[in-house]
């Protein structure tokens, strides 16, 4: 087990060094949530006119449109990056020629994938603290202490996202270029997960899809903590669902990864890109 943890640490540090030495990708995490929020605020004002804020409050129960959007956008962007970046890391290794080297060593692939995930977790957490923390400090200083419990929930919510990330990385092993698919899925998630609006305004049948993905629960819990000042323990229902999804998606992702890895060993796909 200690050996496996050393593998996890080595993979995580290696990926973090790559982030540090290719800094432009990291900046994306910190800037895009603000840009999206600005875009949506402008569109909302344009459509809703002078009553836009009142309409928004009536539908969401939240007065602070900016904070509502930045929270949703930040989580969606983080989820996008986690889902795609675990696969992207593997894709980059495929192209650079280092992927094969990681299959030559006697490691448990679960810890390899987890190592990739943890590197992204640190970045995700950092971006959440910086983006949401600075937004709270700017517009609702009183709520700033709620950043800590919401970060805890974020860590929990990342587990099922890792599982989905494993699924995408297995697609990379098989399809090599699955980005059109992942972009489609990620955009779809943004529509159904209540990123910019509450899920209950969606058609009933769409809500079924919403409640089958972790994003929805994560965003919902965050908003309850930040805007309604609910305690983490009060949210046990969502928390249990997130944990269950974590287990299911992790197992699914790992099994798919192993399945496609085996296929790649049969057709020589590990060295192809």
């Amino acid at each position: 087990m200690i050996r496996d943890l050393r593998v996890l640490k080595a993979v995580m540090i290696k990926d973090l060094k790559h982030y540090y030495r290719y800094p432009s990708g990291t900046l994306f995490l910190f800037i895009v949530p603000f840009l999206f929020t600005f875009l949506l605020s402008t569109m909302g004002s344009f459509v809703g006119g002078t009553l836009a804020k009142e309409y928004f409050y009536l539908r969401t129960g939240v007065e602070n449109f900016f904070l509502y959007q930045i929270l949703g956008t930040n989580i969606w962007i983080m989820a996008w990056v986690i889902l795609e970046d675990i696969g992207t890391s593997i894709r980059n290794e495929q192209i650079k020629g280092t992927l094969e080297q990681n299959f030559l060593v006697p490691i448990n692939k679960f810890f390899f994938l987890l190592g990739l995930s943890f590197a992204h977790t640190l970045l995700a957490l950092l971006s959440f603290i910086v983006v949401v923390g600075s937004s709270l400090a700017l517009v609702d200083l009183e709520s700033l202490p709620r950043l800590f419990p919401s970060s805890l929930i974020l860590l929990l919510g990342l587990i099922p996202l890792f599982g989905l990330g494993f699924v995408f990385s297995s697609l990379v092993i098989h399809l090599k270029e699955p980005y059109s698919f992942t972009h489609l899925i990620n955009t779809f998630f943004s529509v159904v997960a209540g990123t910019y609006y509450p899920v209950h305004i969606l058609p009933y049948w769409v809500q079924w899809i919403s409640y089958s993905i972790p994003h929805t629960y994560l965003i919902d819990e965050m908003r309850k903590i930040i805007f309604s000042n609910q305690l983490v323990v009060e949210l046990y229902g969502n928390t249990i669902i997130l944990l269950s999804m974590g287990i299911i998606y992790m197992i699914l992702g790992l099994r798919l990864f192993r399945f496609f890895e085996r296929r790649a060993r049969i057709n020589g796909g590990l060295s192809k890109f």
Partner: peptide, 10 residues
């Protein structure tokens, strides 16, 4: 294995 691409250049 063959070549210099087996390493992390960064």
């Amino acid at each position: 294995l063959t070549g210099e691409r087996a390493l992390y250049w960064k």
